[in-house]
């Protein structure tokens, strides 16, 4: 059920519902990850998906870009990938007698960085820095990345041989880390019986454009947060740091920045749910995705820890 949204949110809520519906038709049976991915985008964060190949990561990224009318590119990370392959390169133009910049795949609004842990750290950090700064500095020149700029990186948690796992400080660059997981039998049946996903994506109409998305992002930032909710968020943060005897085995506590990100993600989630205010439910919905990879190295382990934390902290 949904709450009656505030009047100024009505068009946004309706449009977001349409976006969600269209995505759900492609990424079948994955309501929760879809909502989280959408909230992550609306909160101007980046998304890390940890899962095995073939569960629909690139379908999700591609469908998101197509539905929102954003330019999409995909980078397959390999062990010999160089920073220039991601960012772009300046080539000497004989005729013009000057260097000309060829922008790399990162100059797109939705970038899927597939198997990011396969590339050497230098290339990884080139992408991660671009994510943080939302600009690329090459040859002493700074180039702005498109707005909005949304990176979906994937990593395969099972095959770790010959891989360079992301260090914790780099994980912090991602607003959320989620798993997609296997579809349930009904959804899988629909998937198997349905036609070609790629063709379907190509046919999908764009329901938004970058300015609209920027407006939504602004709206997400202004969703009301009540003092009672701040109390709850602070209680969660305190519990993650092991205060009040609610230590759920956290290896390290959540930073104030993690708290701000949690609020931003919860606001975006409330907007997706067409609510004019943030509820504890929103915080709880995004908490495993936002806090998991910050509390523990992996999305799965962290998410379990985060869920335990949520259960341990009563609503104030």
């Amino acid at each position: 059920m949904t709450l009656r949204p505030a009047s100024q949110n009505v068009p946004t809520a309706a449009k977001l519902a349409a976006v969600h519906q269209q995505l759900a038709a492609i990424v079948v049976g994955k309501e929760a990850p879809l909502k989280l991915a959408l909230a992550c985008l609306l909160a101007r964060g980046h998304l890390l998906i940890e899962d095995i190949p073939g569960v629909g990561k690139s379908t999700l990224a591609h469908a998101l870009a197509a539905t929102l009318g954003l330019r999409y590119s995909r980078i397959q990370f390999t062990s010999d990938l160089l920073p220039a392959d991601v960012l772009g390169v300046s080539v000497f133009d004989e005729r013009a007698q000057a260097f000309r910049f060829h922008p790399g795949p990162v100059f797109n609004s939705v970038v899927l960085a597939d198997e990011i842990n396969r590339a050497p750290p230098k290339t990884q950090s080139a992408l991660l820095e671009a994510m943080e700064e939302r600009q690329v500095s090459l040859d002493g020149q700074t180039r702005k990345l498109p707005e909005p700029f949304f990176v979906i990186a994937t990593q395969n948690p099972t095959e770790q041989i010959g891989a360079y796992p992301l260090p914790e400080s780099q994980l912090d660059r991602f607003l959320m880390a989620i798993e997609i997981g296997y579809p349930d039998p009904g959804a899988e049946r629909e998937l198997l019986s349905g036609g070609d996903r790629r063709a379907k994506i190509a046919e999908m109409p764009a329901l938004a454009d970058p300015p609209t998305l920027a407006e939504w992002q602004r709206e997400a930032g202004s969703v009301h947060v009540a003092p009672a909710l701040l109390d709850y968020v602070q209680a969660l943060l305190a519990a993650s740091r092991g205060a009040g005897g609610a230590d759920a085995g956290a290896r390290r506590g959540l930073s104030p920045r993690a708290g701000l990100m949690l609020l931003a993600a919860a606001r975006a989630h409330a907007l997706v749910a067409a609510r004019p205010m943030v509820l504890p439910e929103d915080v709880q919905a995004v908490f495993p995705a936002v806090a998991g990879h910050r509390l523990a190295g992996g999305a799965r382990a962290g998410a379990l820890q985060a869920q335990a934390l949520v259960r341990a902290v009563p609503l104030p």
Partner: peptide
């Protein structure tokens, strides 16, 4: 449940 929000509980 102690952590349950109003919407989750009434649902």
């Amino acid at each position: 449940e102690a952590h349950e929000g109003p919407l989750a509980y009434t649902t």
